[in-house]
């Protein structure tokens, strides 16, 4: 974020003084590798072994009552969200030329992603909205 609009190679280089982008580059490959197994397994369990039209509340509640499903789906959620949202970020940076629009597009993207990630974690670890409300009410006040 050093130079808003780098016009020379030197300015562009100084804008990316850290190795953050390199870390994301490596992460995309490692998480991609893990996601091949996680996503193929997920689709096999929920689309191939059963008719997906049979999925209903009872089916999902039964799955989320199993510890290994919570762990499996937590890895799936974490890797898929980071890999997917970072991929969308690459696309935003490729196609939104206007810095203002690019900023807002990324802000909306990250906000939506964070909200959905939190909802996903809450769902997996079996908090209902009601239980969350009660848990918040039960917190000692003044802390």
């Amino acid at each position: 974020m050093a130079v808003a609009r780098p016009k020379t190679l030197r300015q562009a280089r100084s804008s990316y003084a850290t190795n953050g982008e390199l870390a994301w580059w490596i992460f995309m490959r490692l998480s991609g590798l893990a996601l091949i197994f996680l996503v193929f397994g997920h689709i096999f369990m929920n689309n191939i072994q059963i008719n997906v039209a049979n999925v209903d509340y009872a089916y999902v509640a039964n799955r989320f009552s199993k510890g290994w499903v919570k762990v499996y789906d937590s890895f799936l959620l974490g890797f898929a969200m980071l890999h997917g949202v970072n991929g969308l970020r690459y696309s935003v940076e490729d196609y939104f030329k206007n810095p203002k629009r690019r900023f807002w597009a990324k802000l909306i993207l990250f906000s939506v992603a964070i909200i959905l990630f939190v909802m996903g974690v809450m769902t997996l670890w079996a908090f209902t909205f009601e239980e969350m409300g009660n848990a918040i009410d039960a917190l000692p006040h003044g802390n």
């Binding site: 969308l88 996903g120 769902t123």
Partner: peptide, 17 residues
């Protein structure tokens, strides 16, 4: 990625019981 966001949203509706 867009499907993923939608999918997390729809599955999280199980929280309403």
């Amino acid at each position: 990625a867009l499907y993923l966001l939608l999918h997390v949203l729809d599955i999280s509706l199980v929280m309403y019981g």
